[in-house]
């Protein structure tokens, strides 16, 4: 746990359940949890790279998105990544579109 930020280093978002059991914090599986998290961030970078964005881990719990101008925004959960990526890039994210990244459009209202 980060004593400054009071962050446990393990997310509670549904997508953070890369663990072996239903425990709130995956202390016993922490290495497995972190390895799966690293893999996910690598995949996420491949997806947001066309938007000119880079994603980094933030204390094992949140995600930091940075654009080419150096602007950084923190996404507390994976669900928050997409609206932030849209706001930083001005492009839309739509998994139903052919390339996942939709042409320039107005970002949807839901996050």
């Amino acid at each position: 746990m980060c004593e400054v930020c009071a962050i446990f280093g393990a997310g509670e978002h549904w997508s953070d359940f890369a663990r072996q059991r239903d425990d709130r914090f995956p202390f016993e599986d922490i290495l497995h949890y972190r390895a799966e998290r690293r893999r996910r961030i690598a995949m996420l970078n491949a997806l947001v790279q066309p938007l000119g964005l880079v994603c980094e881990d933030w204390d094992g719990e949140a995600l930091a998105l940075t654009d080419a101008r150096g602007r950084t925004k923190i996404a507390p959960t994976l669900g928050d990544v997409w609206p932030i990526a849209e706001s930083l890039s001005g492009r839309g994210i739509d998994p139903l579109s052919e390339d996942f990244i939709a042409p320039m459009r107005e970002a949807p209202a839901h996050g």
Partner: peptide, 30 residues
């Protein structure tokens, strides 16, 4: 699982108002 969560979270972000319910039983890499 990491790839699936990326996809589903993005799908719910973009189309959550039209996906009334989703559920499943999944064997995962995690």
């Amino acid at each position: 699982w990491p790839a699936f969560t990326l996809w589903l979270s993005a799908l719910l972000h973009a189309h959550g108002d039209r996906i009334l319910r989703v559920k499943g039983l999944l064997r995962t890499t995690s």
